[in-house]
Design a protein around this nucleic acid. Structure first.
Lengths: 220, 220
DNA sequence: AAAAAAATTGTACGAAGGTACTAGGGGGGC
DNA sequence: GCCCCCCTAGTACCTTCGTACAATTTTTTT
């Protein structure tokens, strides 16, 4: 079962990586001419300017001609908006046009096997958003898991200062700061001080009331 | 590259289809005994009663022992709640335990290629609900000072990932990531990645830092 | 009083982060 | 042509971080 790759693009110079990934792949301007010579297994749609050409229109047009063909959008300027738009329109994948050849090949493998490929940022955002609608109890609970001293350390680190500076501030040794941090990481299930700061900044910031209605879309 | 399949289940009678799909796969009660004989490539976790055993606990436990192993949850009583729970806990797939052997094999193919398998209903639901959520724009004043590539790096670091992970994501070397970060620190007048993350989190929508390699897949 | 939890500090070491110096290719402006 | 910026990347070096073995003292709980 030979996979035929076809890439629709008007900016061939930006397809160096794709060419490397699929040396036998075709590149064209329009999908029409290829509907006769046998439909491609996988169609790569190159999005150059997300503002100019609405990607959903292109996807719908292609699916009308080639209903069996999987569509992967590769974008020079990837954005989560465009990704969601593409996926909602029926695309099976969305990734950076300048991704490495091996990366592109992996996307191809997943998609040809009936998969759908989404960027990690978007995916984690989606999962994070959907998680909240079932377990909405963040804020105070985070710091409440910690002992008083651990809270002090956590808040200090959350301000972006080093272990040495925290030690000075709390009048303890750097080693003790590290000890507190160790148990903080464990309790809050974060990898390091960076993720701790992110976690804290999320929970200490006021919530945006405009986003509450989005979650109601999941009844269960 | 032989794939080793291991299925954890206490209800072997319900695994007829799985056995057909992977005749050479192993079935066991616990993952521990297998950590010695070489870790399995793909671990199928059989969820019999979603109310009784919280699937997330099992997944975390397995990931602690077998960090490299991909986990697919197969459930006798699939639900979207359980699916979300499983995926958020780090599972790479979720499907019906009584799915056809060829279906299970397809799931295996996608997941072993770095994909994440989600049911199509759940996925479309997620996409629909998340579409309008993508509105808030990050911190223009801050990010506008950076070049496009620097912005990508900054946002990635703002999600709490390491230089190595950023490098993988942007398909560049770790050294280049460091180079970008150097100029980012200078431009935004921050000391390190920690202060950068804090600066970004002031105006950027926070995300879940636990997942770094999530890609999604479902059957069209 | 005994047990448990919290707070403190030590040494040592590998991993990760950040910087200094360097440098080549590409693109745009002068 | 030249200059400057952007993106890329290599080696080297030092710092910081996180955690592995600890241990001691104080406070709280049972």
């Amino acid at each position: 079962m030979m996979t035929m790759h076809l890439c629709l693009s008007t900016q061939i110079k930006h397809l160096r990586r794709w060419r490397q990934a699929f040396p036998n792949g075709h590149i064209a301007d329009s999908a029409k001419e290829f509907s006769a010579t046998g439909p491609p297994t996988l169609l790569w749609l190159h999005s150059i300017d997300p503002d100019e050409s609405r990607i959903d229109k292109s996807i719908f047009a292609i699916r009308a001609i080639l209903p069996e063909t999987k569509i992967v959008v590769i974008s020079n300027t990837p954005s989560q908006q465009e990704a969601l738009l593409a996926l909602n329109s029926g695309a099976a994948g969305y990734c950076h046009a300048q991704a490495s050849p091996s990366f592109l090949q992996q996307v191809a493998t997943v998609v040809t096997n009936g998969g759908l490929w989404i960027g990690s940022e978007l995916m984690s955002r989606i999962l994070a958003a959907t998680e909240q609608l079932q377990t909405s109890e963040p804020n105070h609970l985070t710091l409440a898991q910690l002992t008083p001293r651990e809270q002090e350390v956590a808040l200090a680190v959350g301000r972006g200062i080093s272990n040495k500076e925290v030690a000075q501030e709390l009048a303890i040794t750097e080693r003790t700061v590290k000890a507190h941090l160790g148990s903080i990481f464990e309790k809050l299930e974060v990898r390091d001080r960076l993720q701790l700061a992110i976690l804290l900044s999320r929970d200490t910031l006021p919530e945006d009331p405009t986003q509450s209605h989005t979650y109601s879309a999941f009844p269960g």
